[in-house]
Simulated assay, not measured.
Amino acid sequence: MSQLEKFDAIYQRACERKGGKEVLESLIDKPLSPQTLAQIDESRYLAEFTKKVFQSGFVWRVVENKWDDFERVFFEFNIQKILLMPDEMLEKKATDPSIIRNYNKVKTIRENAIMIDTVNREHCGFAQFVADWPTEDIIGLWAYLKKHGARLGGNTGPYGLRTIGKDTFLLSNDVVAYFTQWDIISGSAQSKRSLNAIQASFNELQQQSGRTLQEISMILSRSVGDNYF
């Protein structure tokens, strides 16, 4: 594995590509604090996971346009109400023309509600569970969602976490291309070996910069690829 590039070099290149420091910084968002994350209602976690499941392999804009109907049809993603839904009700709701009619994806709503409810009972609540998960092992949280949730593997779970406000990097095409170009990884970015190498690299960049994983990820993605003005 090659030596990792210094954060300062990555940052400088991103500034040059985006038109200066002020412009770059205006494009960088920060995650929520753990304290804020812990206060988010668990229904919002289920809602974000569901939205990302439906957006996966589909036109994101269409899902956004129908989202108010998703909220209505699925009881604002109230966990306890979702848990009480029998198969027959799920099947019926999957035929509702106001949402995207995909029964296999609709089933994940109850399955992911079960995951959240299980964490609620075994830990100190799902929101607190996510808030407390150490960012230096964020790929461990990805793995948990993949194993215990439904259709939350690949980029789906991480994108859901990012949207809700959990500090995480993302394996965007530019980020993957960067680590491949620098010989940090080879082959699939989703392999255990690649994920560990990428996590270790982000941890090192975080120690150098003092920034969050999200900030580093967004800066790095703007330092490579075809994202000039």
Rank of each mutant, 00 (worst) to 15 (best):
S2Q: 08
F7A: 03
F7Y: 15
A14E: 00
K18P: 00
S26G: 15
L27S: 04
Q39V: 06
D41N: 12
E42D: 14
K51E: 11
F58G: 07
V63E: 11
D69G: 02
N78F: 09
Q80G: 05
Q80C: 05
K81D: 14
K81W: 05
L83E: 12
L84D: 14
M85Y: 08
E88D: 06
E91V: 03
K105S: 01
K105R: 14
K107Q: 11
K107S: 03
A113Y: 06
I114N: 04
T118Q: 15
N120I: 01
H123V: 02
Q128E: 15
Q128R: 12
F129C: 04
I138C: 08
I139F: 07
I139G: 03
W142H: 12
A143L: 08
H148N: 15
A150H: 09
A150Y: 05
N155A: 14
G157D: 10
Y159P: 02
I164L: 12
K166R: 10
Q181R: 09
I185A: 09
S191V: 10
S191G: 11
S191K: 11
R193P: 02
S194R: 09
L195V: 02
Q199F: 09
A200F: 09
S201T: 11
N203A: 11
Q214Y: 02
I219E: 00
R222G: 13
R222D: 07
